[in-house]
Computed example of a mutant assay.
Amino acid sequence: MDILISVVLPLGLAFIMFSLGVGLTGADFLRVGQRPVAFLIGAMHQIILLPIAAYFVVRAFGISGELAVGFMILAACPGGVTSNIISRLAKGDVALSVSLTAVISLASVVTVPIIISFALMTFLGADAPDLDIASTAFTMFLLTVVPILLALGVRRLAPDAMTRIEPTLTRIATVLFIIIIFAALASNWDAFVANLPALGPASLVLVVVLTTIGFFVPRLLGRSLNECKTVSIETGIQNGTLGIAIAAIIIGGAEGFGPYSLPSAVYSILMYVILIPVISIYRRLD
């Protein structure tokens, strides 16, 4: 288990983030300035709305302690490459989706430590483990920014080769994603079974709330249907692998895959229960 937490998990996450970076170009970042309103709405949903919604869902379901912190960790994580794929399937604005994923992933170096610190103080109080915000930010930088920047550099040097191997990298990243989720569940099986009556409904409600608000708020602000679909999906999908990694590497310490990681693991599975019909609905909205 020590090797899994200290070696396999960070390397697996780094590979997943690298596979995300391979699909990016400098234009994905520059596009933010070309469409600032749509991007700003999507960014505010992910950075501000998501943690607020998670906080109220946790309170509404009476979830406390480490599991509550785990939900806030999940809410702090940006969407991964999965959101880009689902945006494409839902006939959304894929360019906006990619731009949001790229920029919010880099911004997580700042946003994640702040949200985690708030969650620890709020739900654990004096029992909260010590959290060095600077060290957490540096760890986030190593786990997310470095692999993405490395992938951008490799893609710039060998664009044709990276384009050819991108589907293979994505498939490998998907397998690693599944392995990490089920490792987190297996390591906390008793806690998972005991808390599933609260974790399951809370996760489903959170997905419904986020995808619904994510669609209607941009619509009320006059954005196009495709932009609304994308903001909805980007708000509803979280990078569960990153959430599990943060829980295990930054907070878990000697516990490894502790209860902190359960919300990310459960959410990563149950979000598809809601998103599959959402994709079907969005495909008809043209």
Score class of each variant (00 low, 15 high):
residue 175 V to N: 06
residue 174 T to A: 14
residue 63 I to W: 01
residue 283 R to G: 11
residue 91 K to Q: 02
residue 90 A to E: 01
residue 261 S to N: 11
residue 11 L to N: 00
residue 120 L to A: 06
residue 160 D to G: 11
residue 135 S to Y: 09
residue 206 L to C: 06
residue 9 L to P: 01
residue 256 G to A: 15
residue 65 G to N: 09
residue 11 L to A: 08
residue 36 P to D: 03
residue 13 L to M: 09
residue 118 F to C: 05
residue 159 P to R: 08
residue 286 D to G: 11
residue 155 R to F: 07
residue 201 P to S: 09
residue 77 C to Q: 03
residue 119 A to P: 05
residue 231 V to S: 12
residue 37 V to N: 02
residue 121 M to F: 07
residue 87 S to P: 01
residue 45 H to D: 01
residue 5 I to Q: 02
residue 111 T to H: 04
residue 223 R to K: 10
residue 147 P to F: 10
residue 240 G to T: 11
residue 214 G to I: 09
residue 155 R to C: 10
residue 153 G to W: 05
residue 58 V to L: 05
residue 235 T to G: 10
residue 4 L to A: 13
residue 3 I to L: 14
residue 192 F to A: 15
residue 168 T to R: 11
residue 185 L to R: 01
residue 76 A to C: 04
residue 114 I to V: 14
residue 181 I to F: 00
residue 200 G to K: 14
residue 72 M to K: 04
residue 186 A to Q: 11
residue 230 T to M: 14
residue 260 Y to A: 06
residue 176 L to C: 08
residue 62 G to Q: 09
residue 205 V to D: 02
residue 117 S to R: 12
residue 126 A to L: 12
residue 25 T to R: 07
residue 26 G to H: 06
residue 2 D to E: 15
residue 202 A to H: 06
residue 210 L to F: 08
residue 138 F to K: 09
residue 111 T to W: 01
residue 268 S to E: 05
residue 61 F to N: 01
residue 89 L to Y: 03
residue 243 G to A: 06
residue 277 P to W: 14
residue 90 A to L: 07
residue 4 L to T: 11
residue 227 E to T: 15
residue 246 I to A: 05
residue 19 S to K: 04
residue 2 D to H: 03
residue 5 I to P: 01
residue 66 E to Q: 07
residue 76 A to W: 00
residue 102 A to G: 10
residue 117 S to G: 11
residue 265 A to S: 10
residue 138 F to E: 10
residue 173 A to Y: 06
residue 18 F to P: 15
residue 252 G to C: 12
residue 214 G to N: 11
residue 239 N to D: 07
residue 114 I to Q: 07
residue 265 A to H: 05
residue 2 D to G: 03
residue 161 A to T: 11
residue 5 I to T: 03
residue 54 A to K: 01
residue 266 V to Y: 03
residue 264 S to V: 08
residue 286 D to H: 11
residue 182 F to I: 09
residue 125 G to Y: 03
residue 122 T to F: 03
residue 89 L to W: 02
residue 220 L to N: 07
residue 137 A to N: 08
residue 112 V to E: 03
residue 251 I to T: 04
residue 280 S to D: 12
residue 13 L to K: 04
residue 120 L to M: 05
residue 62 G to D: 06
residue 52 I to G: 09
residue 234 E to H: 04
residue 1 M to H: 11
residue 178 I to C: 15
residue 53 A to V: 15
residue 272 Y to D: 03
residue 171 R to K: 13
residue 74 L to N: 00
residue 89 L to T: 04
residue 103 V to Y: 01
residue 139 T to Q: 12
residue 202 A to I: 06
residue 119 A to S: 13
residue 181 I to K: 00
residue 136 T to K: 08
residue 111 T to F: 02
residue 164 R to P: 02
residue 16 I to R: 00
residue 5 I to V: 14
residue 249 I to L: 11
residue 164 R to F: 05
residue 262 L to Y: 05
residue 202 A to E: 01
residue 241 T to V: 15
residue 213 I to D: 00
residue 158 A to R: 14
residue 192 F to R: 09
residue 53 A to C: 12
